[in-house]
Design a protein around this nucleic acid. Structure first.
Lengths: 270, 270
DNA sequence: CGTCTCATTGAGTTCTGTCAATCTAAGTGG
DNA sequence: CCACTTAGATTGACAGAACTCAATGAGACG
């Protein structure tokens, strides 16, 4: 593909699972070994393949090493809404794997490479090592937070703001894994995909792209997005990313089981 | 208020935290006692009070015993998007408490009664008893799932479908805590609140209400919603709730540390 | 050289928001 | 008890946003 930029910084872990959890909690060498033990296999998924299918059970976690995917719902009227787009470092299986039957599908937009583990194996690990249960909570909270942002975007922002924010956000996400430069990146998605993510029609999305160019905010050439002035567009979109707190370390485990504590005051109330 | 129905079934726990976790995992008497020990206090919040404020740190979990709230974001242009509406049994603090600074506000739409605990205390409990870490994960996943449904609603459903689905969903949520009858319920929300939740304007929401009545799907009188035929409206909205799986029980804890396992195949790949 | 996917553009229509006015019920203070 | 205020629901007229349908390009690929 023309213009593809791919700068993998040396600091990036080769292991997407470890890299992701490392953002939330301290991981010792022993922890990393434990994580390795629950990883089942390295799997390659071909383009256009549905990894998770709405209505069917899925009980795995896939940590994306390479490639792109979309979590989506297909409606009876044929329309599609993409919940979110998945890039390297993201996880397939949260929240799908936690439901009796998945309520969304996940489809590979490109060929993908993932690390796979069984949900049961991960849950088992959480029982043995509570820090991983907390890490899982943090991952799920992160997912919820991202979805909430999308609700605000689609519900109350103009279509051009939505698109501009989408581009800024995608740039920031791709930059983390070295798939973007300081002021631009190659869009891995077609306009159809983006319009389904933003709740717009393809022609309208296209017009909004044209307008962003007209307004001198971006340039676009063969799917390569370049921000003319990244500060200007950040202000235009009111882009203020919020970060999750890190998981508090375990307090000194006082012998093993003190449990004297004060009684629950709540029962008395009411 | 006219027509208010309030039937609390005997099976409902008085303790919203226990009731909520019980949906996801087996709780022994000892577990329930543990939960009691992390509850700090029973708190009353007055109407219109902002419990969580966008941009400020919040590090608590509030389990709603009574009353209604809205999680929302206010945009620079003055528009408001409600992420979700909170009813008794819901939790304030997921995801807000997990961020450096909250990225949404939560406001009390009515006077509320909540059980409060500090996030640190709950995290500490998770370290000591891993099942609660898993329970926390499940709560966060549930939150993410609900948000995802809202994305689909706002992104790709017509305004009348959105409203109809909102009513059906709210009925089902209120029914759980005995705040609805088999075919109707009292709406605890103004049309302004509902329009901000559904990403519509107040006049348009009002027109959609009128149309639902015209179409003979609901009747509405002093905020009391009655479904003329609940099956018909369920089909109209394609309402198919999906449930979370229950958290798998711990497997027999094999001595303590076997960890022989096979080595991680992933490292080899690539 | 077809075929396919994807991007782009135009014309017309529908949906939905904005603005403004009216109406009702519920308080509130005198 | 009444005039006044306020919150919320309702309605109408109008403008603008966004969709649908349809056609045209442009590049990739076999």
């Amino acid at each position: 593909m023309h213009g593809r930029v791919r700068v993998i910084p040396e600091s990036t872990y080769d292991d997407p699972l470890v890299a992701r959890l490392d953002q939330h909690i301290e991981l010792s060498a022993a922890d990393i070994a434990l994580l390795g033990s629950v990883i089942d296999a390295s799997v390659t998924i071909s383009k256009r393949r549905d990894v998770v299918v709405d209505g069917y059970e899925f009980r795995k976690l896939y940590f994306i090493k390479d490639g792109f995917a979309a979590r989506y719902r297909l409606l009876p009227n044929g329309k599609r809404q993409i919940i979110n787009l998945l890039v390297p470092g993201d996880i397939i299986g949260v929240p799908s794997s936690f439901l009796d039957r998945a309520n969304f599908s996940v489809t590979a937009l490109t060929e993908m490479k993932v690390q796979a583990c069984l949900l049961d194996a991960f849950v088992d690990l959480c029982y043995r090592h509570p820090k991983f249960g907390l890490a899982l909570s943090w991952l799920a909270v992160e997912e919820a937070t991202n979805y909430a942002e999308r609700i605000v975007d689609i519900g109350r922002r103009t279509s051009i703001e939505r698109l501009a924010r989408f581009l800024i956000e995608m740039h920031s996400r791709l930059f983390v894994s070295g798939r973007a430069t300081a002021d631009g990146f190659d869009l891995p998605f077609s306009q159809e995909v983006m319009s389904d993510a933003l709740g717009l029609s393809v022609p309208h999305l296209n017009r909004m792209f044209a307008q962003l160019r007209m307004d001198g905010l971006i340039s676009l050439q063969d799917r390569h997005v370049k921000f003319c002035d990244i500060v200007v567009i950040q202000e235009f979109t009111h882009f203020h990313p919020r970060r999750l707190m890190r998981i508090p370390a375990r307090r000194k485990p006082i012998i093993e089981k003190p449990e004297p504590k004060r009684p629950c005051k709540v029962r008395a109330a009411r």
